[in-house]
Amino acid sequence: MRIIFFLLLSAHGLIGMNLLGSDIQPSEPVKAHLVSEVESIQPGASFHVGLLLEMEKGWHTYWLNPGDSGLPTTVAWDLPPGFVPGGIQWPYPNRLGTDTIVNFGYEQEVLLITEIKASQMIKPDETIRISARVDWLVCKDECLPGHADLVMDLPVKNAASADSRWAIKFAEARKKLPISLMDWGIQVFTDGDQATIRITSPFWFESDFTHISFFPEQMGLFNYAKPQIFRKVEEGYSIQVGLSKLVREIPTEIQGVLVSDKSWSHVSEKRALRIVVPCVQIKKEDKKT
């Protein structure tokens, strides 16, 4: 009895606290915090905030395409008039799950960055309240849906200043954001139940990938359990990915992220490349009957 009383007291105490501008929420394996890259905001300027999810060992949350099961984390913003939020900037995920059921998501910790544009009409020394309702599914062997109502107050000032507490976390998350590069040649062909992604290296690329994984953004298109076949070819690389038999119509465009063991950029270390590519269906030549 005494133990229960103590636990109730602690829970109540925790609910009373306001750590890092966030609230403690009931879903135990995940702790969610709303953090800011900046200490203050300026009228009409864009700034970045992040949804920091800390997961207990063995638990994971999901990418924008969760894979064969699961649900992606969603955020609904409650901002003052004139403030415009962007979408979640998803770091590239890890492949999780089993041979039979494949998921795409995050373990331990993930920072989901969002850019917000401030209203022109705010004035210095005002305080702006940023609220977010976050919903997630966190799974280990079982799945627990969870949510948090997070709140953060930021002052309006004329001069910008960074919040150094989170600088490292923002930098680490940004490293994992996919880049879009013009000088990589990407083509996608589908043929029956396979899709082939052809990658042509740019002239400056002197390195060599030993592995590239494709993470599709579109749901229901690919057979995730079918192993992807990575090959080095003359002009670069190719990846063969299984298509789902349940696809009724091959789309005209494929969207996804290619994750490699080396950088796609010669300017900075970026292991993920986002591709948005027309999809060409190969038709077998008509055979004479």
């Binding site: 064969d68 099961s69 699961g70 649900l71 799950g97 089993t98 039979t100 059921i101 998921n103 799974c139 062997d141 079982e142 799945c143 749901m219 229901g220 349940l246 696809v247 009724r248």
Partner: peptide, 13 residues
Amino acid sequence: IKTSSPYGCSVKY
């Protein structure tokens, strides 16, 4: 409508 994305927890094989 012959197919859609199934959603849920993974089957615990």
